[in-house]
Design a protein around this nucleic acid. Structure first.
Lengths: 200, 200
DNA sequence: CGCGTTTATCCGAAATTTCGGACAAACTGC
DNA sequence: GCAGTTTGTCCGAAATTTCGGATAAACGCG
């Protein structure tokens, strides 16, 4: 489960307060004072969620939201506002905010929302990783001649064994249940170099 | 994206009202009048989320919540209550409710919450499906000797080609870019019978 | 039925792969 | 630094695979 919360809040006092709340709940806040400071962390593979104030000196929370959604539509952004305001809340929802909270808000409520957002972010990222893995296998599985496909698969297996054994050919051969010389023969044919699989 | 919402509400008027709200938002409500009626739909592979009233004659919303969480911890349950009540809300959160809403609630708010819950449910189920698929490949991919694994893969490829060509060996051989006789040789060695891949 | 096509097998020669043995070079650890 | 291990390469014989050709049986269809 992910734990990072990119916290964007210009008021140092409130920022420290929220940070404390999150730390107590075993989350990992990344405190920033505004859009500029937070910007570099907002990426499509950010392993966490965003918690941003709306009213801020440089850029407001909606710009954060817009920026984040452009980088990754599935990156949850939770917005905080000082005074409740119905049209503002509506705009937040319309723009894709994950949740909209009024300050001061119940810490339990805040943590609850953040937890759900983190959970969601976790499965979305897992999802992407798995999809990529599946796509790889799937694609490689349909094209080319029989021998080409088998060679590709053989290469995969051998390379996997090699990296699992830190590039030791004899150990990999043992793991794969073939004589060492045979593995060398196959590696020569497939143009695999053992050195490329050493960690150190 | 999933759209089903298992609606549990004993008051017929309110039930119909919520149903209308959901229909207007292109969701698929499944209206029920209580735990008993809803029970059979609550399964670990339910392709939707649950929206339940708390106060009800037979079993209350917390029993629904408990039952649902037992069947599937990742099945979102949204609870509705008539009169706001802090300890009740706390209990809902503690028991793993996805969200806690007070009646009467803003339809937009309701739809917003349901949409997020459905989104979450969607990725969780996708996740499971992919995990299963990966596990299958993964398991078969890690065990046995090199030659065994290659033979297994070769068998997969040949069988796939055969069924794609309705068990015609010559056509399959052509598709796989190998001479017909070679494919027969391989099939003999792998003990594959072409007849088994004819549709008719 | 009769004819063309496809399947399933067998043969055998050429090509490839397997794998034990051998050996110098590189690496390891004490 | 040096003894023991491991690597990377070469050899060569045995085993296996490839693949064209041939053929009988089975199939498909007008």
């Amino acid at each position: 489960m992910l734990r990072k919360v990119l916290l964007i809040e210009d008021d140092p006092v409130l920022r420290a307060s929220i940070e404390q709340t999150l730390l107590l709940e075993d989350l990992e806040p990344i405190p920033t004072n505004g859009f500029t400071q937070a910007r570099r962390s907002i990426r499509s593979n950010f392993r966490g969620v965003i918690l941003s104030d709306i009213q801020m000196p440089d850029r407001d929370g909606f710009e954060v939201l817009q920026f984040a959604k452009a980088r990754d539509a599935d990156l949850p952004v939770i917005l905080l506002t000082g005074h409740s305001n119905v049209p503002t809340a509506m705009r937040a929802v319309r723009d894709g905010a994950y949740e909209y909270l009024e300050k001061p808000c119940d810490p339990r409520r805040l943590v609850d929302v953040l937890t759900r957002a983190l959970e969601h972010r976790t499965v979305v990222l897992e999802n992407r990783a798995m999809r990529e893995e599946l796509d790889q296998d799937g694609q490689a599985n349909e094209t080319g001649s029989l021998t080409e496909r088998l060679e590709a698969h053989e290469r995969q297996i051998i390379e996997h064994a090699l990296s699992a054994e830190n590039g030791k050919v004899a150990a990999a051969a043992n793991r794969l249940g073939v004589p060492r010389n045979t593995l060398y023969d196959r590696m020569t044919k497939l143009q695999i170099v053992a050195k490329a699989f050493r960690k150190a």
